[in-house]
Structure formats: C-alpha cells, structure tokens
Design a protein around this nucleic acid. Structure first.
Lengths: 148, 148
DNA sequence: TGGGGCACTTACCAAATGGTGCATACTTGT
DNA sequence: ACAAGTATGCACCATTTGGTAAGTGCCCCA
C-alpha cells in the first residue's frame, strides 16, 4: 500500500485552499454580508417576495385584489405581510386613496424596479429549463414513472 | 363631497383588471408553475442554495470543508442537506474519491452552471445597493439611532 | 335585508427550517 | 493514547414560516 504516497497531493491534514475567495462582482464592504448575493437574498427572503416584485414590474401599479389574483395560491395574510415588508424595505410603494370602499395600490420604487430587473434572468432560466425543473419536482413529490 | 363621483374610474365593484397577465418572458407551459420565475424559485428555495451555487461557480470543484468555510455561518447539517438536494436536482455533482480520510468534492453540472449565471445580476444588485440594504436591516433588527 | 366585494387584521396551528451536539470510521501528528 | 481533521448521520429542539378561518367597517346591488 505505498504508505508514504497514499495522499498523492492535497493531503487532508493541510487544506489545499484555505478559503475560496468570494470576489468576482462581490466585494464585501459592509459588515454582516459575505457578498452582494447574500445581501440580496436576505431582502427577497420570503416565499412570495420575488413573485410580487416581478408581477409589479410587469404592469403598472396593481390594486391589492389584482395582485392576489395574480400571485396564485397566496393567502391574504401572506400577501399583506410580504407587501408590508417590501414597503418597509423601500422596494414597493403603497398608495392608499382613502376612499370609502377601500382602494389601495402597490407599485415599485426605483430600488424595487432595479431589483426586479435583476430577477429577469432567473425567470428566463426557469422558462428555458422548465422541463428539467418539473421533472425534478415530479420525483421530489414521491413519484415514479411507473405510477403510484 | 361630490357623492356620485367618489369612484371616478375603476370602481371597486367592477375589477378594472381581471387578472394581470404574467407574460413577458414567462410562458406558463408546464403545469404547477405560474411562470419561469416560480419554477426557478422552487429549485433554489433554501437559505443556502443560491450561495452554494454561486461559490461553486466561482472556483472549480470545492471540497466539502472548503465549501463550509466559504459559506460562512452554515452548519454541517444544513450544508450537507442542501448539497444533497442540489445533487438530487441535478445542479451539483458530488465526487467521492473513496479515500480513507474521506475526500469528496462538489462541482456544478452544466445545468447548475447556467443557473449560477442567472444569479449574477442578483449579486451585482446586492453589491451596488449594499448601503441601502444594510440600512434596511439595521432597522429591521430593532435598532434606533438612539441606541437600545 | 341579505350577500358580496374591498383591504385588511387577528388568533390559532401545523409544518418547514435551521441549529447544537454527539457519533462514526479511519488517519495523522504529538 | 489523544486530539484533530475528514465527510456525514441522526436525534432533539427552537424558531420561523406559512396556512386557515374568522372578523371588521363600509359600500353597492338586487
């Protein structure tokens, strides 16, 4: 067993790479974030936020009800909650017309709009690879080609 | 005042827009997804997945330990878990060298690489707007200028 | 007068998510 | 012998997240 060359290179006792550098386009400037992606992810954390941003980016301001119909499967509670957070984070603007049957609409702030644009490639990716993606989910949901 | 024109246009009893169309770049083809973005989001759902993909995209294959040091604050359990899912989803490839002190490394599959590229704009966005973002988090974490 | 819509709000609950710590099997260094 | 490192597995627990269902005040319509 060639005892002195079992680990030909990169022997585990001496880490080959101390720590990968998180750089290209990622300059850790502010504290708390390891990189820009980290920062972004924390802002859009929440099941519905990216979707909301994206829908809002498609059409002009949407009324609450429209939005809820657009983002299918979202409950009132969730939609409101995420909208509030997005508003607090300065990504969406809420306009309350103070009318008597309530009328409110939501639109993107410039910041929100810029973020929504960064989301576009993700959308395209999903569209392009939807076949693979749905295949993946098919088996995730406990499902085999042979039925059952 | 002006009782008959309170709802000048788009009176609430008659929805102005029946349902916003989720189209530009989003063609709902396969069942289950409202649009491409939806599909993508489900694949990268999980606190660390985008980060893992992104790190993997930066350097070549990473050994498990390197990855964990790179993605700071991630626990073993989480990292392993997410790596397994990514592997199952065909985004990363795991190579086990079957050596005696365990040696394993992870790299992106072509699919994973393409997804990682779609993540780039998010990273740039985060980097560009990191100031705003960290301001947002400052107040989210219950924080006032006047301390405590 | 009753039903429905609007935009929310609240209470309660289940499930997902994530963290800590211990265990494994084996090696190398001291 | 013992600590440390390698890549994981697993049990247990706390927190977070998300969902359901109900209620609110006010209006319009039949």
């Amino acid at each position: 067993m060639t005892p002195d060359m079992k680990n030909d290179r990169s022997d585990p006792t001496q880490p080959s790479a101390p720590a990968p550098q998180p750089d290209p386009g990622c300059t850790p400037t502010l504290p708390g974030f390891t990189c820009g992606l980290d920062a972004t992810l924390r802002i859009i954390a929440g099941k519905w936020k990216p979707l909301i941003l994206y829908f809002l980016a498609q059409g002009g301001p949407y009324r609450y009800g429209e939005l809820r119909r657009a983002v299918r499967d979202v409950s009132d509670k969730m939609l409101i909650q995420q909208l509030k957070e997005l508003e607090a984070d300065g990504l969406v603007k809420r306009t309350d017309y103070k009318e008597v049957p309530p009328r409110v609409d939501y639109s993107l702030t410039p910041l929100g709009r810029s973020l929504a644009e960064a989301l576009v490639p993700l959308c395209s990716w999903g569209t392009e690879h939807m076949a693979e993606v749905s295949r993946v989910f098919a088996q995730r949901d406990g499902w085999t080609t042979k039925g059952r």
